[in-house]
Simulated scan of single mutants.
Amino acid sequence: MTVLLVALGAAVGAPLRYLADRFVQSRHDSLFPWGTFTVNVTGSALLGFLAAAPTGHGVMALAGTGFCGALTTYSTFGYETLRLAEDGARALALLNAAAGIAAGLGAAYCGAAFAEAL
Rank of each mutant, 00 (worst) to 15 (best):
L94P: 13
V41A: 15
G58V: 14
R83G: 02
A51T: 06
L5A: 09
T36E: 11
A97R: 14
A7Q: 00
L5W: 13
F32I: 00
A61W: 03
T65Y: 05
L94Y: 10
T65S: 08
A113R: 05
L50H: 11
A99L: 15
R17C: 08
A14L: 07
T73C: 09
A117L: 06
L118C: 06
D21N: 10
F67K: 03
T73A: 06
A108L: 10
G106K: 14
R83L: 10
F32Y: 05
L82R: 11
A7F: 06
L95M: 15
G56P: 08
A14F: 04
F37R: 02
A51K: 01
A99T: 15
A93R: 12
A7V: 05
A107C: 04
V24S: 03
A70T: 06
F114H: 03
T65R: 05
G58T: 15
E86S: 13
F23H: 03
F49R: 09
A7G: 12
C68K: 08
T2E: 11
V3K: 02
G56M: 09
L31A: 10
V6A: 02
S75A: 14
H28R: 01
N40K: 11
A103H: 13
R22T: 12
N96S: 11
A7D: 00
F114A: 10
A11T: 12
T73P: 07
Y74D: 09
Y79G: 03
P54V: 08
D21K: 01
G43I: 04
A113L: 04
T42Y: 00
R22Q: 12
G43R: 08
A20D: 05
P15D: 07
N40R: 12
A53M: 09
A97P: 07
A89T: 01
L31V: 04
A91K: 14
A10D: 05
G104I: 15
G100Q: 09
L47R: 11
A61I: 05
D21R: 03
L105Y: 15
S75T: 14
A103K: 11
F37D: 00
F23C: 02
L31Y: 03
A93T: 07
T76W: 10
E86L: 13
A108C: 15
A85E: 07
D21C: 03
G35A: 08
D87E: 07
G111T: 06
V3M: 04
N96T: 09
L5Q: 12
G58R: 15
G66P: 08
V3T: 04
A11D: 06
Q25M: 01
A102Q: 12
S30T: 02
A102I: 10
N40Y: 11
G35H: 02
T38F: 05
A89L: 01
V6I: 08
E116P: 00
E86G: 12
G111F: 04
A99R: 13
G69A: 01
T38H: 03
A112D: 02
D29N: 05
L50W: 06
G48M: 08
L31H: 07
L8S: 14
R90A: 15
G58K: 14
V24T: 05
I101S: 12
V41L: 13
D87V: 00
C68M: 08
G56V: 08
L8H: 06
